[in-house]
């Protein structure tokens, strides 16, 4: 009924036991089984008993780094995938996390399954185990083994993942996973596709998409690298513009969020995952990441010492 990946989960639990025992960490942030098939939920372990609920498997999608700020004064351990670790780099760079205050267990990640996508081919409730390889996703179900093409099983970002293994960690959970060679711009496919349209077509596209936006700000709330105590872009609850969802206010919010994320977005697309109305936000943040690269040669999440591109200038540019 629930996906297990016995071996790595057990190793993880063991590691966390040791962290607690040796006093390296007071809490550990990881995943435990969620209430529904193929779903996990963030789990904050504070004891050995808590640690025994931890899991690691190809459904662990959440970027846990967004919860780190709640444990600022504690010694904290955390489990991060490749993409999550890039957020950690930004948070350390932007002084939201102290590197020496966090113990990082890096999880080499073969890709995470998208439960909605899988549900198109298999009833998730029947899946008992998942194994992700480069070329295929193998599901063990009540009815036997099923093999799916990764494109029919994984989150889109995992198909073009350039960093399955974290750069930044104290220890790794399992062996590093080799990067699959992907075309240079593959990660920005959605953005590039939109770039092909005319300006007017793009406006029409976003007008339609953003018309769905309820200004719930879940995208901002889930973002691991959005750390402001209060978002300057979010309208107050009682603002009539928020209630009316005025077009200009919605455009302004998303465009400005894209600007704020330029040089900061690490491409986890948690925003898109949590969007209740399915706005293709990843396209926006692909654009932000792409411009950061094209204009300034800067890639967020890769180097703690790199100065953000809008906080510096090159040779008179």
């Amino acid at each position: 009924m629930t996906v297990v990946n016995d071996q790595l989960t057990l190793i993880l639990r063991e590691k966390v036991h040791t962290l607690f025992a040796e006093g390296v960490a007071d809490v550990f942030i990881g995943y435990r089984h969620g209430g529904k098939p193929l779903r996990v939920q963030p789990h904050v372990a504070r004891s050995a008993a808590d640690a025994d609920q931890l899991v690691w498997n190809p459904t662990c999608i959440n970027n846990l780094t967004s919860t780190l700020h709640k444990f600022a004064d504690m010694r904290v351990g955390i489990l991060v995938k490749g993409c999550d670790s890039r957020a950690l780099v930004e948070l350390i760079k932007l002084r939201q996390v102290r590197r020496d205050g966090v113990y990082i267990i890096g999880a080499p990640c073969p890709g995470i399954v998208d439960h909605e996508l899988i549900a198109r081919s298999v009833d998730p409730a029947t899946i008992t185990d998942i194994f992700v390889e480069e070329a295929q996703v193998m599901l063990t179900t009540d009815a036997g083994e099923i093999t799916l093409d990764p494109a029919d099983a994984l989150y889109a970002k995992c198909l073009t993942c350039a960093q399955p293994t974290p750069d930044l960690y104290d220890e790794l959970l399992g062996d590093p996973i080799a990067v699959h060679p992907i075309p240079l711009d593959a990660r920005f496919n959605a953005a590039i596709e939109l770039e092909q349209l005319s300006v007017a077509e793009r406006f029409a596209f976003w007008d339609e998409q953003l018309n769905k936006c309820t200004l719930c700000y879940a995208c901002q709330a889930v973002c691991p690298v959005c750390f402001c105590t209060a978002c300057a872009l979010a309208l107050p609850r009682n603002d009539p513009k928020r209630k009316n969802r005025d077009r200009e206010s919605v455009f302004s919010f998303h465009l400005m969020r894209a600007y704020h994320m330029t040089g900061r977005c690490i491409g986890c697309y948690e925003c898109e995952r949590v969007c209740p109305v399915d706005i293709p936000l990843s396209a926006i943040f692909q654009k932000a990441e792409k411009e950061s690269r094209d204009l300034f040669g800067y890639k967020a999440g890769s180097d703690v010492a790199a100065v953000p591109p809008l906080s510096t200038f090159g040779d008179k540019t």
Binding site: A191, L194, E195, V199, A200, E201, R202, F203, A204, F205, W206, D207, F251, H254, L255, A258, Y259, T262, I284, K287, A288, E291, S292, L295, F296, P309, L310, F313, T317
Partner: peptide, 16 residues
């Protein structure tokens, strides 16, 4: 100069 180089790209991306 840097800020508005980004901003122009983003405006364009949103169809402005």
């Amino acid at each position: 100069q840097r800020r508005f180089a980004v901003m122009r790209q983003l405006l364009d991306f949103f169809g402005i």
